[in-house]
């Protein structure tokens, strides 16, 4: 009896090809995601990035009127460069001076202009599921 090629193999091969095709299609349309950078690395970035940093100084302004203004520095480096951020939209409950946050946005004329509702806070001290903003 001649062994016929199993259709199961054909299906698997075809689906792997299909998945790869979808993948390539997706990455070519949507790009490969957002780079995640620290304030000290922000200099050369021109596109949209996710900025990870610790809030220093007292925040001013209103996130729902004109924008909340604060500065971020590298989490690991207390003496490092800071970058001014202007943010609008939902402010998570845990946002405060000294807290680690992630905001998405773009550097414009030396100020990091955050995408609306993009702020996510991290709680460094202990187990805590915190609030992702605006999703």
């Amino acid at each position: 009896m001649a062994r016929k090629r199993s259709p199961a193999r054909l299906i698997i091969a075809l689906s792997i090809a299909a998945v790869l095709a979808i993948f390539l299609l997706y990455t070519s349309i949507a790009g490969g995601g957002t780079p995640s950078v620290k304030p000290s690395q922000l200099g050369g970035q021109t596109g949209t990035v996710a900025l990870v940093g610790r809030v220093v100084g007292a925040p001013t302004g209103d996130a729902h009127a004109g924008g909340l203004r604060f500065r971020l520095r590298d989490v690991q480096n207390p003496k490092g460069t800071t970058v001014p951020v202007v943010y609008t939209g939902t402010v998570p409950d845990l946002f405060a001076t000294g807290r680690d946050i992630v905001v998405e946005g773009k550097l414009e004329n030396g100020t990091f202009v955050a995408t609306r509702d993009s702020m996510v806070t991290k709680c460094p001290s202990k187990y805590s599921a915190t609030k992702p903003a605006g999703q």
Binding site: Y26, A30, G32, G33, T34, P35, S36, V37
Partner: peptide, 18 residues
């Protein structure tokens, strides 16, 4: 991406929703 390109790249909601 950190290992390959040196920059950490995150994918978000659009990727997963897609």
């Amino acid at each position: 991406s950190e290992a390959v390109r040196g920059t950490t790249v995150v994918v978000g909601r659009p990727y997963y929703d897609f």
